[in-house]
Simulated scan of single mutants.
Amino acid sequence: MKIIRLVAFLSALLIGKPGFAQSSIMQEDFKPSELNQPGKEFPQVNSEGRVRVQISAPDANYVQLDIGGVKYDLTKDENGVWTGESAPQREGFQYYQLNIDGASVPDPGSLYFYGAGRWGSGVEIPAHDKDFYALKNVPHGTVAELIYFSEITQEFRRCYVYTPPC
């Protein structure tokens, strides 16, 4: 009975919290994906993990972005250029494709990757902790391999010795 009351209390507390509601305003801080073809501006990714694609298809009747098993409709401008965004995606590499009048095709703006038995487009959703794993110019020490005779095992052994910078 105590557990039921606790769950009911926590549920009421969380439902009433305004901080848990998602904002319907999309962040307009889109940047080209690091997996784009050289010189291509699209696809783009924003800080929320949304993917924005753009393709020129003036004769198409409809175009969709197909990512994460969900299709998102794109809108066409007066020049025949289709643009649209996805919902936020999970961090890491994502396969996607464009659907033009029913035909699934790779996005010419992204590099192509082989997976699921076919070539397709890919986009990288940056991780929130990507800086931790990034290469940095920091002072390095040295690692030396030493071979020595062990009195305990009566055989030659090897060890690695790390010496810090300086």
Rank of each mutant, 00 (worst) to 15 (best):
G39I: 00
S23T: 12
Q22S: 12
Q37S: 07
E155I: 00
Y62K: 10
S110R: 02
T75F: 08
L13S: 12
G109F: 04
F9D: 05
V81P: 05
I3T: 14
A12S: 12
N36G: 06
G92L: 06
E91I: 11
A134F: 04
G39W: 00
N79K: 13
V81N: 08
V53R: 00
Q97Y: 09
G102M: 06
A21Y: 08
P126A: 06
E145A: 13
Y95K: 02
Q27E: 13
L65Y: 03
V7G: 00
E28R: 09
S23A: 09
Q94V: 02
Q154K: 15
F132R: 10
N61V: 04
G117N: 06
K2H: 14
E28T: 08
E85V: 15
A12V: 11
L135V: 12
V138E: 15
T75Q: 13
G80M: 05
F20A: 09
I25Y: 01
Q44N: 06
G117Y: 04
L74G: 02
E48V: 01
F93K: 06
E124H: 12
Q44E: 14
D131T: 11
E34C: 05
C159F: 00
D59K: 15
Q22C: 03
P165L: 06
L135Q: 13
P106T: 09
Y162E: 11
Y72G: 01
D59G: 02
E48P: 02
N46Y: 07
I152Q: 12
V63I: 08
H128L: 13
I125G: 08
N61Y: 00
T142C: 02
H140Y: 07
G115Q: 09
